[in-house]
């Protein structure tokens, strides 16, 4: 028992500090990617619902490809292509090539993946809003932006929260995939700790508990948010 505590200690001979730093990186990426995805999702849903034919076709292509190709493959393609493209642009303007930080790349890539799923969730939620509410807003002469902010987003929230909550849980778990491309988030830190001490079960279970804690806290918070946005709606069942 003492040995286990020593291994999990926060100070350097122990690996606890590394695991917690990994957890913080994972959460940073998850937050960033989730909100980037949410922005893409709201834009994408509006484009799919009210955009022209071309916008719709492009968005359909985007959501179909992202949802049919494994995240790991997308991350590699977007990571390589993204860094190449940015350096190509920098080179064109005569600047030195730069190294994209793992954090930014991770957020951008996972955000694009999350965006495809958010688009579908938000689109579905907007479609469940009774059409009369949106027509009423239009009849009041609200501009499209005001209509989105005042009517559509608040009205769709109760229908979107379950899906968006699941997406947040996916975001926290998808960060683990970045371990494969060498980003020092929780899963990779765990692998290093386990590899150097040969205590595989100990460290993987410790990391599992950290992930589980994040999930359970998130589930609780999502439940509270859902209860809040559903206030005033008729209860079903």
């Amino acid at each position: 028992m003492d040995e286990i505590l020593a291994l999990l200690a926060l100070e350097p001979p122990g690996w606890g500090g590394n695991l917690l730093r990994g957890l913080v990186s994972s959460l940073e990426i998850a937050f960033g990617a989730y909100f980037l995805g949410l922005v893409i999702g709201i834009g994408g849903a509006c484009g799919k619902l009210w955009g022209g034919e071309t916008t719709k076709a492009v968005l359909d292509l985007y959501t179909t490809i992202v949802r049919a190709v494994p995240e790991l493959v997308l991350i590699l393609i977007l990571y390589f292509a993204g860094t190449d493209l940015i350096n190509l642009i920098l080179d064109y303007f005569g600047r030195e090539p730069i190294d994209i930080s793992g954090l930014v790349a991770g957020i951008a890539v996972l955000g694009v993946v999350q965006g495809a799923y958010s688009t579908e969730v938000v689109r579905g939620a907007i479609q469940t809003i009774p059409a009369g509410q949106i027509e009423a807003a239009r009849a009041y002469g609200m501009s499209p932006w005001l209509r989105l902010r005042r009517i559509i987003l608040p009205a769709m929230l109760p229908f979107a929260i379950p899906g968006l909550g699941n997406l947040w849980l996916n975001a926290t778990k998808d960060t683990a995939i970045l371990a494969v491309v060498g980003f020092a988030e929780l899963t990779l830190e765990t692998r290093q700790a386990a590899g150097s001490t040969k205590r595989y079960f100990l460290f993987y279970i410790a990391a599992g508990l950290l992930y589980l804690m994040v999930t359970l806290v998130s589930t609780y918070v999502i439940g509270r948010i859902e209860a809040r946005v559903r206030r005033g709606l008729p209860r079903h069942g």
């Binding site: 899963t187 993987y204 990391a207």
Partner: peptide, 9 residues
């Protein structure tokens, strides 16, 4: 509640 990659490893 935990990533598949972690379970696999």
């Amino acid at each position: 509640g935990t990533p598949l990659l972690l379970q696999m490893w």
